[in-house]
Computed example of a mutant assay.
Amino acid sequence: MGSGAMADSFKNGWLALAPFKNAWSHRQLVRRFVGREVVGRYRGSIGGLSWSLVQPMAMLLVYTFVFSVVFKARWTAQNEIAGVSFAVVLFVGLIVQGIFAECIGRAPGLIVSHATFVKKVIFPIEILPVVAMGSALFHSLVSFVVLFFAMLIAGNAFHWTIILIPLVLAPFLLMTLGLSWFLAALGVFLRDIGQMIGLLVTALLFLSPVFYPLSAIPESYRIFLMLNPITFPVEQARDVLIWGKMPSWSGLALYSVVSWAVAVLGFAWFQRIRKGFADVL
């Protein structure tokens, strides 16, 4: 292999790892900003951080009453055998979707709302989507704690596959981060993107198996739902958390490759057009 080919190979390898190297090199700053954002969300309220626990608890109670008592909803025959309420199954899907909705929903306005970092301060603005992801993860972790307590109180079985949930969600978080970088950069030049994303996130919620099992959809239409970035992680999260199933390793591998590509391309897009941010802001 010639020196030019080796240089290109090295450069391509560096580009593939660039998003992760960047986040790692600024990890202290990311941690500080995530903490500030989490605390700042509840600043001035009497309950403070306790609201991060109260809100998912209240949501789960509402879901349990509405779907289990009012609608008497059932998931599948498997649900009745496992003794898992519809609300618990639904809550898992909503936790996963909530991470996506918060990160993608905020992404178009991230740079615009931090314009001073672009104009006056030497600041690694590419970490802002990572900070938003960290805040979303904090609240999702609290929701998972609420979910586990609800399962414990209801007498639901805990399967050893629960330890695989980080492995299942890691590619999903990677894809969400890549999309966030792309939308954060695009949102600087196209302000209407924020309104469009709100509609898109709502559409993706109902076009993913959050409120219904994928098996309830005619097989000829399932391929379209599988193109939804939320569908696969929602299904896999339920499998390892509730049903005690192993994840689809082939599906997870494919999803991971696509997520890696989305993250690298999203980061590259952000870095490429960031030079024009100051002119627009």
Rank of each mutant, 00 (worst) to 15 (best):
W51Q: 11
V34C: 07
A82S: 02
E80T: 03
A82V: 02
V92E: 02
S113F: 04
L110N: 08
Q78L: 14
L61V: 15
V38N: 07
T64L: 05
S52T: 10
V62Q: 05
R27W: 12
V54Y: 10
Q55K: 08
W75E: 03
T64V: 01
G93S: 08
T64P: 01
R43G: 04
G44M: 10
R74L: 04
L94S: 03
A77M: 04
V66E: 10
I104T: 08
R36A: 08
S113Q: 15
G40E: 08
Q55T: 13
L110E: 11
L94N: 04
C103H: 01
E102W: 01
V39G: 03
V39S: 12
M57H: 08
G47Y: 12
M59V: 00
S85Y: 00
P56M: 01
Q78G: 13
E80Q: 03
Y63I: 00
V62R: 08
M59A: 12
V70Y: 12
V30R: 03
T116G: 12
V38G: 06
G48M: 13
R36C: 03
V30N: 05
V39W: 08
H114M: 01
V54C: 09
I81N: 01
F67V: 00
V112A: 13
T64A: 10
P108S: 06
G109M: 08
I99S: 04
W75D: 05
C103E: 10
L53I: 14
M59N: 14
M57D: 05
V66K: 07
L29N: 07
L94H: 01
G47Q: 11
R106L: 15
P108A: 09
A58D: 03
Q97H: 15
A87E: 08
Q55F: 08
S68H: 11
Y42S: 09
V66Q: 10
S45H: 08
V88S: 04
Q78E: 12
T116W: 13
W51Y: 14
V96S: 11
A77I: 04
S113H: 13
G44N: 14
H114I: 00
W75M: 03
F100H: 06
G40C: 07
L94I: 09
F100G: 00
R32N: 14
V89I: 11
V34M: 09
G98W: 13
L53A: 15
R32Y: 13
R32L: 12
F71E: 02
W75Y: 10
P56G: 03
Q55C: 00
V88H: 03
R43F: 07
G105N: 12
I99W: 11
L60M: 11
Q97N: 13
G44C: 09
A101D: 12
R27I: 07
V84N: 00
Q97L: 07
S45C: 11
